[in-house]
Design a protein around this nucleic acid. Structure first.
Lengths: 111, 111
DNA sequence: CAAACATATGCATGTCTGTTCATATGTTCA
DNA sequence: TGAACATATGAACAGACATGCATATGTTTG
């Protein structure tokens, strides 16, 4: 009986609390994209102003190629968007949702 | 001159916008801990109720060892805390900051 | 104390990922 | 059109990581 109540609690969780595999993956994909120091720096830089690829590379003192790869990861996660202006592509955060999330995490990290 | 203005903008960003290496790492460490489907499921399960290690393993249909390893990662990131009650250790989210962050990310992921 | 149970941890392994180098693609302008 | 510049992409490699197995540690109770 105790066991049964126990199981009912878990059943409840499985059906309501824990997401399906694809949903969990979607959520973790976002976090995975933000879970790397270089990408954190890119995002925080873009929270101030939009920047070209070379500008970001200069700020972070990294190769153009490296930054471009990371921007692809951030694009795929729908965190940044790039807009071509002549030869350059200007990147910006896709919305300020992102900034809100970072503000909360920074609070948590600094605590 | 154009170049100089350009550089001033970047200087500004480097000193104000972009965090130091250790700070960026702290932030990304949080995100890294949440950037994995199993850990996302654990966190969402714990957002409903506290659970023992074996209960989590049962819910997620994974080995006890695997869950324990993941819980260590989440502990290290100060996302969960465990409290020993007899033979069992009951885990819960460290605060509801975590839930807020997840709510925002889920919104972003579902959009 | 010994047996049973719950959790933690070291090791091994297959997989994933961040970075650079070289090069391709796209754009401007002379 | 061709040279110069900005960005993207493929390959390769080193380092990181998730998981399971075996086992150690911690806790209760008979």
């Amino acid at each position: 009986m105790d066991k049964q109540i126990h199981n009912r609690k878990l059943e409840q969780l499985i059906t309501n609390g824990v997401p399906e595999d694809d949903h969990a993956k979607k959520i973790s994909d976002f976090f995975k994209a933000t879970g790397e120091p270089t990408r954190v720096k890119i995002i925080l830089a873009l929270s101030q102003t939009s920047l070209s690829v070379n500008e970001i590379a200069e700020i972070l003192n990294m190769s153009q190629s490296g930054i471009s790869h990371q921007l692809k990861t951030l694009r795929d996660a729908r965190i940044v968007v790039g807009e071509r202006l002549g030869k350059e592509v200007h990147y910006r955060l896709i919305d300020n949702h992102i900034v809100n999330i970072f503000e909360q995490v920074i609070k948590h990290a600094d605590e």
